[in-house]
């Protein structure tokens, strides 16, 4: 009888693990250069304990007009447009919290930002919430989910420890841009307010400044923590736009993209169309490349990015800006689109 009850308990636990996966959308095809466990072995404490950097779990909002008294035009924000709603998350607030567990259009989402790697990514979280573990790998924030205590390096978006090891979070597109650019594209945007439930000096960034560019964020400045792979092709903190598929990682030189407007990358399985968005100064990636590729001048840019009949039905591929050293540390086999062979 004792053995039978143990078996029943094991079955029940296995069942609950499945429930976790249902509540938090996951997939099984993350791009990993190493075995997941290796990333955990290479991780180290950043100093604060688990949740010492508190996520914002009950966000409060300002109108764009109210946000104007807090943000300067060139301050950085992380923007999300989803289900017809536009939201901006000021970098000056996220630098102190790194994760906002939000709900947009009825979907639970986590908007995450790692100041040390300059990366902003959004994830579907279901009913689960993400928190800051206090550990770093390749200087990048390692998140943990509060249901299963799995650990997720933000750039990998894949669990490297815990029940979800080897699985990946479903990403949503977030835009790393300036307040002026986001406000122009989304005049009715709401903005995360400083009523975060915590007291911080949100007018001060402990690492430096993006407006003007100072301290840790200067491209030539050094990084703090050790990395798994190094490469001197670009200054360590230079921002590239990166996207990855199940087979490869691609880094796009942002100056090159600004010059060209459109780029086509021939991947091992599919081709990718990369479009520069001059309004937000970011990139959008689609696959496959349409037969009649429109010129950049023919494109219009709306709330959801580039618009053109030829782009309809194409699969958008998520991408994000990142400091070069961090991108390379995670993806040493990365393709670089720079226009230079």
């Amino acid at each position: 009888m004792h053995l039978i009850s143990r078996f029943a308990l094991a079955v029940a636990l296995a069942g609950s693990a499945t429930t976790y996966a249902e509540t938090m959308p996951l997939h099984d095809k993350p791009l990993l250069t190493h075995a997941p466990e290796r990333y955990w072995e290479e991780s180290l404490s950043g100093g604060p304990p688990k949740d010492g950097i508190p996520s914002i779990d009950a966000p409060d909002w300002w109108t764009a007009e109210r946000a104007d008294t807090f943000l300067s035009p060139h301050d950085r924000v992380i923007g999300v447009f989803r289900n017809g709603e536009a939201r901006a998350y000021p970098q000056r607030i996220l630098v102190w919290h790194e994760i906002v567990n939000d709900t947009i259009g009825g979907n639970g989402v986590s908007i995450t930002y790692c100041p040390l790697t300059g990366t902003a990514l959004g994830f579907l979280r279901g009913d689960n919430t993400l928190g800051v573990s206090g550990r770093l790998v390749n200087s990048n924030l390692i998140m943990y989910d509060r249901d299963t205590d799995s650990y997720w390096p933000q750039v990998l978006a894949a669990a490297v420890r815990g029940p979800h090891t080897g699985q990946a979070l479903e990403e949503i597109r977030v835009v790393w841009t300036t307040w002026e650019r986001w406000r122009e594209r989304h005049p009715r945007t709401r903005v995360l307010s400083d009523e975060t439930g915590f007291i911080r000096n949100y007018r001060r960034d402990p690492y430096g400044s993006y407006n003007p560019l100072e301290g840790y964020y200067v491209p030539d400045s050094g990084r703090f923590f050790p990395v798994m792979h190094e490469n001197g092709r670009y200054p360590p903190k230079q921002e590239i736009f990166g996207f990855r598929t199940a087979r490869e990682a691609v880094a796009v030189d942002r100056d090159h993209l600004r010059d060209q407007g459109l780029l086509i990358h021939q991947g091992p399985e599919q081709d990718y169309l990369i479009i520069h968005d001059p309004g937000l100064d970011t990139a959008w990636v689609f696959s496959p490349v349409p037969e009649q590729t429109p010129s950049h001048d023919e494109l219009r840019f709306g709330p959801q990015g580039p618009e053109h009949p030829e782009l309809e039905g194409l699969e958008p591929v998520n991408g994000f800006e990142a400091m070069w050293f961090a991108w390379y540390a995670f993806y040493p086999d990365t393709v670089v689109l720079s226009g230079v062979p």
Partner: peptide, 19 residues
């Protein structure tokens, strides 16, 4: 945030001992 003061000063390699 992620780093102790000494690390923010930028002394190379020190961050490995943040614990």
């Amino acid at each position: 945030c992620c780093a102790p003061t000494l690390v923010l000063i930028g002394i190379p390699g020190l961050a490995a001992y943040a614990a």
